[in-house]
Design a protein around this nucleic acid. Sequence first.
DNA 1: AAAGATTCTGGAAGATATTGCAAGAAATTT
DNA 2: AAATTTCTTGCAATATCTTCCAGAATCTTT
Lengths: 310, 310
Amino acid sequence: MTAEERQHRIEAHVQKVEFASLEELSRQVGASVSTIRRDLNILEAAGTIRRTHGGARLTIPKTDEFAFSARDAHQLDEKEAIGKLCASLIQPNQTVVLDGGTTVFHVAKHLQEKRLQIVTNSLPVANLFASAQHAEVILTGGVIYPRLGVLVGPLAVKTFKEIHADVAILSAGGITLDGLTNSHALLIDIQRAMMDSAGRVVFCLDHTKWDRKSVAFLCDLDGLDAIVTDSAAPPAVVESFRDRGLEVLVVGEPVIDRKPDLGMGKSPSLLEAAVPVYEETPPRVSATGPIAAEPAYVESPTTVNVATWD
Amino acid sequence: MTAEERQHRIEAHVQKVEFASLEELSRQVGASVSTIRRDLNILEAAGTIRRTHGGARLTIPKTDEFAFSARDAHQLDEKEAIGKLCASLIQPNQTVVLDGGTTVFHVAKHLQEKRLQIVTNSLPVANLFASAQHAEVILTGGVIYPRLGVLVGPLAVKTFKEIHADVAILSAGGITLDGLTNSHALLIDIQRAMMDSAGRVVFCLDHTKWDRKSVAFLCDLDGLDAIVTDSAAPPAVVESFRDRGLEVLVVGEPVIDRKPDLGMGKSPSLLEAAVPVYEETPPRVSATGPIAAEPAYVESPTTVNVATWD
DNA sequence: AAAGATTCTGGAAGATATTGCAAGAAATTT
DNA sequence: AAATTTCTTGCAATATCTTCCAGAATCTTT
């Protein structure tokens, strides 16, 4: 085995497991720990990997291990399930706004294989799609908020004022009948801009968020169209929100059992509307690929084939 | 079997397995290791394959500057050295624009410990600083260009029209007395906007870039203030650029030996200017210095706090 | 067709680079 | 602060690379 090959395998393995100890790598590629050390130095110089005491980790964390891993470790299964359900609502060729929450990140994971246009202010989401072939990703500008890995500030807000999307998928710190709240005041401005820019607004909230308030007020219940939550959400509370005209999708509950709430909402039910409308949307891809297609759609609304929902 | 046929088979095999040792190839095509060596040298000269210790691998990326494969070990040492030298020119509290080239990425690595304001359209650079304590990072918006990991499009260009930076650090595909050229036309617009937004423009070019032209014209020599290159740059060529009034910093050459070219350039020498001018720059928060002049893009007071978080 | 010249091939010797180990230094943990 | 782990550095063993040479194959010339 050549040195390059070995380094390639080290890199691949670290990519897979996010963090690997020296012994682990040594066993994996069949070389001594010393050699692994040297290889890691080389790989670090190349920028692919970052060394730590006792091993190596990814420079560009693939998952939310990014900055919010601690927060995210909780309710992981629930968030995963919410992500899967929410992703299944998205139709091909839609334009989707994704915020920087951990729950939304799990939605993004399940969107990777779909042909979509993604607009996000989340660095982890952007990294997730960075090498994706199918999706085209627009990252808002802004200042990196280190702990969360999201882009904030007027630059980010402005981006959403200039685009229109089919769906916005957001998360929040808590929901009550008074409305939604979030824990970071900075994110409020951006989330509002996201909501304004999208035809439909979906919130992903795990069961711990129900009937809970966070520090900063985001919007009242008129601001959103649907909520996706997990099966541990208190049924009575969920029902009270449905009475208020909100479409609440619960993981595990069969779709047929849900009330569409067609009469109440200002727009048709997410599921019913989605299919017929978007299937006729022409494919975005031109002959030259995503790159050639790109320059126009941000600035000029005409080429933005995202306005199909209205 | 003819030599050409054998080389063809070698190439095909390497294409298939990505890495191949000499013995493996020797067995594969039925020739001695010596012959394989020679063939590999020929194939490498032709550019189809790259040699490594003990074997060969295929040239994954076309080795142009902007193919951001983290695996790109092309001129790694040189780029590392350039990055170090270039980073040493940056003073604390400056606002620095960084482009998405691999050489500039190495500059970024050496800037991590400094207290700076970074503006970039490079996802890898953003990730590098994402958890950085000292630097504040502004990422431009734009569409992710997958292969390069940079943000392109009008959104990215617009960002630079709204900011002012002290220094812009860029790279290019080639430089001649006619000017600079780059390999990706998409990047030209953004690089020009970067150059316009910055008080001083520095290009990082390894020795392979001298006297070489790439496909797309970027700007003529008036557009830049200084060049940082490695010691393998052809001295005669370097001298011809100095005669044209350019400040060329070569890795390893002592600073004193360099001609400041004060008279020719439109602005004072980078090194001489850097210390007196920028050291008196008041901290970013106030409203007078070149850095503080930028709040155009950080309009809201909330985002200013970003610097102090953590 | 034969002799000579040129190129190609395979191998060997010295030079260079890589690998694995061990001892001391540094960092982390208890 | 001591103990443990991990990191760096130096060194010997190994592997690989380059350079050179002789024989084989191919081409050219007569």
